[in-house]
């Protein structure tokens, strides 16, 4: 690897190592120690590829660490890449039940979310049509509503704002605030300092896979 590449790489990404010649190995997180309790709301910052999403996924139990362990107690909800598992050929209603089941609800619970989502998304009769026919803004509304239709104890959110038109943005923020308020532990990875300042009490900085706490001042002043 050339010196130029090495220097450029300092800006992004985890540590790339080689194992057995051919296999490339990326060490995304190293020596992360973190204990969160009820009432904590954490903001994660760091440049692209610093490990924010990986850390959130490790907290969620998607990625199981190779050394060390993650202990988690409480009902969990995640808002990562929303819309995963949605089937565009199915109607909005079918997708609500489908996503609910995938998120661990029973069929009755999943159907129970329908009135709330109907009201929040304002999609009306469109919910009977296949999601394929929706505009991208409408799809985002539905995906956002589905992802946030649970009341978790632990809430993990990966950067995902910028949903729909101005009126809906306002509604989405209100819903987020409600969700964050009702959850006991909240972790939020974002590049938006305004949002972090609004929602989080503590800020952690990820740098090439190592985590350290920085004060709220690290976000700068408005």
């Amino acid at each position: 690897m050339s010196l130029r590449n090495q220097i450029l790489r300092l800006g992004t990404g985890g540590k790339i190592e080689s194992e057995a010649g051919h296999i490339n190995l990326v060490t995304a997180l190293r020596d992360v120690n973190l204990e969160l309790a009820d009432g904590d709301s954490i903001g994660l910052i760091g440049h692209n590829g610093s490990g924010k999403t990986t850390l959130l996924r490790a907290m969620a139990g998607v990625y199981i660490p190779i050394s060390g362990k993650v202990v988690r107690e409480g009902r969990l909800a995640t808002v990562f890449e929303i819309g995963a598992g949605m089937d565009l050929e199915l109607s909005g209603y079918d997708n609500i039940v489908r996503m609910g089941l995938m998120m661990g609800m029973t069929p009755t619970q999943a159907r129970g979310c329908i009135p709330d989502i109907e009201e929040f998304t304002e999609l009306g009769d469109f919910l009977q049509l296949p999601v394929r026919t929706y505009s991208s803004g409408m799809t985002m509304r539905l995906m956002f509503a589905m992802a946030t239709s649970v009341e978790p104890e632990i809430l993990l959110i990966d950067e995902m704002f910028g949903t729909g038109d101005a009126g809906f943005q306002e509604k989405a923020h209100a819903r987020m605030r409600h969700l964050i308020g009702s959850s006991k532990i909240f972790v939020f990875a974002s590049h938006s300092h305004d949002l972090l300042r609004e929602y989080c009490k503590r800020i952690f900085f990820l740098d090439h896979g190592t985590l350290r706490e920085v004060g709220l001042d690290a976000l700068g002043t408005k």
Binding site: R57, G61, V62, L76, T78, E81, I82, A84, G85, M102
Partner: peptide, 11 residues
Amino acid sequence: KQGSVIRNLQL
């Protein structure tokens, strides 16, 4: 094929 589901939901 279900990679996005695996990476984003706890199934």
